[in-house]
Amino acid sequence: MPNRSDGKGLEIIEDDFDAVVNDWIEMQKDEGIQRTDLFSETEIHEQTRSFLRAFIHGIRAGGSVTDFSLEHKSWQELRDVLDDITRERIGRGVPAGEMAGFVLALKEPVFNRLREHYGKKVDTMLDEIVKFGSVVDELALFTNQQFIIEREQVIERQRDEMLELSTPVVELWERVLTIPLIGTLDSVRAQEVMENLLEAIVRHRAEVAIVDITGVQTVDTQVAQHLLRTAAAVRLMGAECIISGVSPKIAQTIVQLGVDVGDVTTRSSIRTALVHAFETVGYTITRRGGEAEQFV
């Protein structure tokens, strides 16, 4: 049984469940946060009802409104429902402010009823309003936090996907891979490039990996270091790394910067790199017919 001494607000919600749901939804409409463009009437009703139901269940399970703490185990269902509602709303593009507004809109229907019920007993009424109000505030805060956490996960996921898309490893020939780099190569991206490349080497049993920097805008000391570290890691895996697309300008820059490329193989174009790769894996390219002119 719910702890009835825990507040009139709860009693009102229980006794007047359907009316509170309707008023709450009306309230959401008035505030302009009822997204009929994103959710159907039925969905909105369902979310609102399941929220209130979970609230009542929480009280029954021993949750206290007086010392409200959403962390308490009795509020598990309510947390889950809020979690679900938040996730669903984010999925459909509801902004953070509206998410809290959805919860806060519960205040007025309950406050109105408390006012009706207590009439002249202003002190008791204020007590109840404060008590119930702080609970709703905490719930709104919780949804807001959930919202931020969910958003961060979405951003993280998209970042991962973007990084993956921007560093595709291509199998050029059996045991020969290439990874064409485009744009800027900061340390996050360099790490991603290295990881993708090394995993592809294992997957394809590759013996040569061509890192093509034709599309890299600038090569400074840091970018050069990233490239050399990638080459070093490729070598540790037992494969050979060729850095291709080294333009005359980049070659000059590298020397002027005093970067020691050690014994890393470099080539000016992916075409010449491929010729080297073919040699390594045991192929030569010959022109068909006539004088059988070698490209190598």
Partner: peptide, 19 residues
């Protein structure tokens, strides 16, 4: 032989490239 990618990356970070 058979160094795992994560091990190779970590060794490079440690500056141990086993030249």
């Amino acid at each position: 032989v058979g160094m795992r990618p994560a091990v190779a990356m970590t060794l490079v970070e440690l500056g141990m490239t086993l030249p």
